[in-house]
Write a protein that binds this DNA or RNA. Structure first.
Lengths: 205, 205
DNA sequence: CTTATGCCGTACCGTACGGTACGGTACGGC
DNA sequence: GCCGTACCGTACCGTACGGTACGGCATAAG
């Protein structure tokens, strides 16, 4: 690992990106058991390169997590002129995005990986790029809505965690444990809408 | 594995229970990496015995999951004469119990284990004794409340999943990923009460 | 006393995998 | 042409671990 850990996904060379993409594919197809030898074959690279670039296996896995995180776009909303309609819209988008990501093969594989190496830095990396990033991203929206008196709540954190619970429910843990659920776009949108409706019932002014 | 898988935790001999308890302790203390050799040392037994009784490693792990599940008591409530107070009380107990269990070392260790072996039967075993058992246990309560017009909802499943989301929120995934949260009895009760209050706001008649 | 059974302890085997070493090749700078 | 750098491919090493074999001891049945 060492210093490389700090490097964000954006600073990867094209070839490094290729390798990390191969790692993601392999991680999904192998059911989470990525081996260095397997990646060498899948990415047509040498072990020497792998170890030169990423230090060791854990460094590679962390780079893979950050690489994946660097791909998700953060949609920007104008917080200054927000009204009830655009606010609800933004919440619905957020909920759909979140459910879409959490139910994706890649997210499931990366979360499984991090969870099964709980002592290492992998868990932290996933938390930082997942749950915490979500909070940082959505709290300004909540605060803006509160300022406009669209919402009433005591603490950002509590409101966000309620929103999170209403959106995610049992979906993530079931998927992680191997429950076979099909999550179509339509189903995601339906669940997202229900979650936001309930959230607004609880917190709307 | 084979047939042993079906045996529930109750049919274990005292010595077998000792070994499974040792497996639980080892699972927690080793951070989820239970090895057969390690268990032999920890439980003062022989590998031969382990393999005779449990078939292979997976059989042992499934037996361990079922053994743990067999320990949790299921409190009984009289569904016939339920009123708003006793219903809210039952929900609060359920929520506290659930948070208490999910935040325990053993639950975290077993869920990590099952998640990191998603292709095997372990995930199923944890789902069956965890999330699904919860549903089976709480739905009669919800139905009874609905019958007494204490609650309004369309589907048992939807109502339960909302309840689940409000109670669990981000607690389980954060713990699984290694987030260091201290969950005291007081904090658990506080979060449980909030969840039930919100649930009743959404579904109470 | 004798035999069978159940279990402990240890030694052992095979393999998968992380990590290292090194020869070979392509390419850019000088 | 010559060297350095970057990378591929392969062979190799060490070890951890799942699983097997077997000898030894204790207890119970006959």
């Amino acid at each position: 690992m060492a210093i490389k850990t700090i490097i964000s996904g954006h600073e990867m060379s094209p070839r490094q990106g290729e390798i990390l993409d191969a790692a993601l594919v392999l991680l999904v197809s192998s059911g989470g058991n990525l081996t260095m030898g397997g990646l060498v074959k899948a990415a047509n690279c040498s072990k020497e390169t792998l170890y030169n670039w990423f230090g060791d296996r854990e460094g590679l896995l962390i780079a893979t997590i950050q690489w994946q995180a660097s791909k998700v776009r953060e949609p920007k909303i104008d917080l200054k002129q927000i009204d009830i309609a655009s606010f609800e819209n933004a919440l619905n988008s957020f909920a759909s995005d979140l459910l879409g990501v959490l139910s994706s093969d890649i997210s499931v594989a990366l979360n499984r990986l991090a969870i099964s190496h709980a002592n290492s830095e992998l868990g932290n990396a996933v938390l930082e790029n997942g749950r915490y990033a979500m909070g940082r991203r959505i709290k300004p929206l909540l605060r803006a809505a509160k300022k406009k008196s669209l919402l009433t709540y005591k603490s950002d954190e509590e409101a966000f965690r309620t929103l999170f619970g209403l959106i995610v429910r049992d979906v993530q843990i079931r998927l992680l444990l191997g429950d076979e659920i099909k999550y179509s776009k339509a189903k995601i949108n339906k669940e997202a809408r229900l979650a936001i409706e309930q959230f607004l019932t609880l917190y709307q002014n």
